[in-house]
Design a protein around this nucleic acid. Structure first.
Length: 527
RNA sequence: GGCCUGUUCGUCUAGCGGUUGAGGAUGCCGGUUUUUCAAGCCGGAGACAGGGGUUCGAGUCCCCUACGGGCUACCA
């Protein structure tokens, strides 16, 4: 049975690189008909774990990465919180001690530091002398008599080599002699990460440890612990890290300010920020930032698009395939085809996947997703009136690929406001409506619009063409002022779609209003 | 410093000694379409980090250098 796990720390946010690691674990387990679990690495934080975990679990659910065991779903190996498993780790430490594969150590921090500095000064690698090692109770008593406090250290081999077969990187060789006698249990009895991690992976019957490459160097000490405890070894696969946009430096959520100098990153960020503002969200760099998954949910990206982008970040099937449904990802994923080199996070390429996926999403699936955005921004009441659905469908159809994230619907809210509540884009108004002849043209157009039959897109188009020909003008001279009059904005949907969606009455009222404003309100103060 | 690890177009990647005058995607540039914007369509520029080997032949194997990343904690 293949069992994989992802082990987040409860930090309050889900990092895009972490999602990639989780995704690979999830895909691998699903591909082999196995199970995927979540384990919480909270050995360090005592405070508010539940609150800090909630956004992470929420992110997993939003992305559709389900877990078979872990927080909120439980499972046969509960608890899945490291902070609640201390007795297991202490038990393991006792066994290691009893087998002579670990020892109690009474060195003070200062003594250790001195050894380390001496080694450094002599330009030789530091290896602890084990001078304050206590292998018998008598020795321990004697050290304790001096007021010293004991920790438990691994008694690492000091010769020989270790070969780690890694499913991504091939065989990796380490010298045991370079490994430190790591502390596995503190003087206060609490245990450290490496011990906890190995014990949990065994207890949870993890078959494949798929994790970030920063753990590759940690693997020898973990293998030592596992072997010393008589555990079977899992398979290992170390994934390359996710790098910054446009560079090979590791991606970090703390460096957004620097990333914003990257035009592509900034474009994606600004787009999201615009939607957040329209929604009235208070955003903080902690969570509202393209490095954090929350960002994409709030702006209204499609989880499938994000997953498709991420699966290609370090994995590929061949030289052609780029679009994968969830099932296709599962069917095709393999660790053998995971790359060894770091991959830069490119928000612009993610954007292109989002664009494509949104284009493929049928209107009737888009509409219900759009409604919460319109409600949040105050354009729709909470129980939605039933006539809104068809109207939104009409807008969505006309908007076509202009809606790239669900939040983009907020660019088309002029269809949902009262005719006299239109907000004009000043520059567009001044340029189009105050253009020479524009008001006169709009006046004539409005008059004739009253009798156009049927009031539908094809007829509106031919009517407009005929009208403009009769006036001896070019179509652009009508289109631009008319669009501003109808929507308040210089850019928008196709003009005939706009007329049709608004309907005859609204269209005429809006044209009248624009004409009136042009006559009565000065430049730069229409709104 | 020591050890481990990585390096093909700006970016994601294909390539597992010869079929490669290095393929695809994204981005960029140009053209086309057009009522704006977006999309679409057509075309273009763009890479094997550097240096040594091995071989009849190297992006593909080996070594060195440079530059990333990790570990070297009583962090995870």
């Amino acid at each position: 049975m293949v069992r994989t796990r992802f082990a987040p720390s409860p930090t309050g946010y889900l990092h895009i690189g972490g999602v990639r690691t989780a995704l690979f674990n999830w895909l691998f387990s699903r591909k082999h008909g196995g199970q995927f679990l979540l384990r919480i690495d909270d050995t360090d934080q005592e405070r508010n774990v539940e609150a800090a975990l909630a956004p992470i679990l929420h992110g997993f659910r939003w992305l559709g990465l389900d877990w078979d065991e872990g927080p909120e779903v439980g499972g046969p190996h509960a608890p899945y919180y490291q902070s609640q498993r201390l007795p297991r780790y202490q038990d393991a430490a006792r066994k290691l001690l009893a087998a002579g594969l670990a020892y109690r150590d009474f060195a003070t921090p200062d003594e250790l530091r001195l050894e380390r500095e001496t080694a450094e000064a002599e330009k030789r690698p530091f290896i602890y002398s084990r001078r304050w090692m206590a292998e018998t109770d008598a020795q321990a008593k004697s050290f304790e008599g001096q007021g010293r406090q004991g920790v438990v250290r691994l008694k690492m081999p000091r010769e020989g080599k270790l070969l780690i077969p890694d499913l991504v990187r091939g065989d990796v060789e380490f010298d045991w002699a370079r490994e430190q006698d790591h502390v596995i249990q503190r003087a206060d009895g609490t245990c450290l990460y490496h011990l906890a991690s190995v014990v949990d992976d065994f207890d949870f019957e993890i078959s494949h440890v798929i994790r970030a490459e920063e753990h590759l160097s940690n693997t020898p000490r973990q293998i030592f612990i596992a072997q010393s405890l008589g555990y079977p070894l899992p398979e290992y696969a170390h994934l390359p890290y996710v790098a910054e946009p446009g560079s090979k430096n590791k991606l970090s959520k703390r460096k957004i300010a620097a990333y914003l100098k990257n035009p592509d990153f900034k474009k994606v960020y600004d787009h999201g920020q615009g939607i957040a503002t329209a929604l009235g969200l208070t955003t903080s760099a902690e969570t509202f930032n393209p490095v954090i998954v929350d960002f994409y949910e709030q702006v209204g990206y499609l989880p499938d698009a994000i997953l498709n982008y991420l699966v290609l970040l370090g994995w590929s099937l061949d030289d052609k395939a780029e679009f994968f449904s969830r099932d296709e990802m599962i069917a095709n994923f393999s660790l053998e085809r995971v790359g060894k080199s770091p991959a830069s996070f490119d928000p612009k390429k993610l954007w292109s996947f989002e664009d494509k996926y949104m284009q493929d999403l049928p209107t009737k699936q888009k509409v219900p997703k759009l409604i919460p955005y319109l409600q949040q921004a105050g354009f729709l009441p909470k129980p939605v009136p039933c006539e809104v659905g068809p109207r939104l469908a009409q807008i969505v159809e006309a908007a076509g690929n202009r809606i790239k994230t669900f939040g983009d619907i907020l660019s088309f809210t002029s269809f949902l406001t009262a005719d006299d509540q239109i907000k004009y884009d000043e520059a567009a108004f001044d340029k189009a409506i105050r253009a020479p002849g524009a008001v006169e043209l709009l006046t004539n157009y409005r008059t004739q619009l009253a009798t156009v039959e049927p009031y539908e897109v094809p007829r509106l188009e031919t009517f407009s063409q005929e009208f403009i020909a009769a006036e001896g003008k070019k179509i652009g001279e009508l289109v631009h002022p008319l669009r501003v009059a109808l929507t308040g904005q210089g850019v928008g949907l196709g003009l005939f779609d706009t007329l049709a969606i608004l309907g005859r009455e609204s269209s005429m009222r809006r044209i009248e209003l624009a004409i009136y404003k042009a006559a009565t309100v000065g430049r730069g103060s229409v709104t």
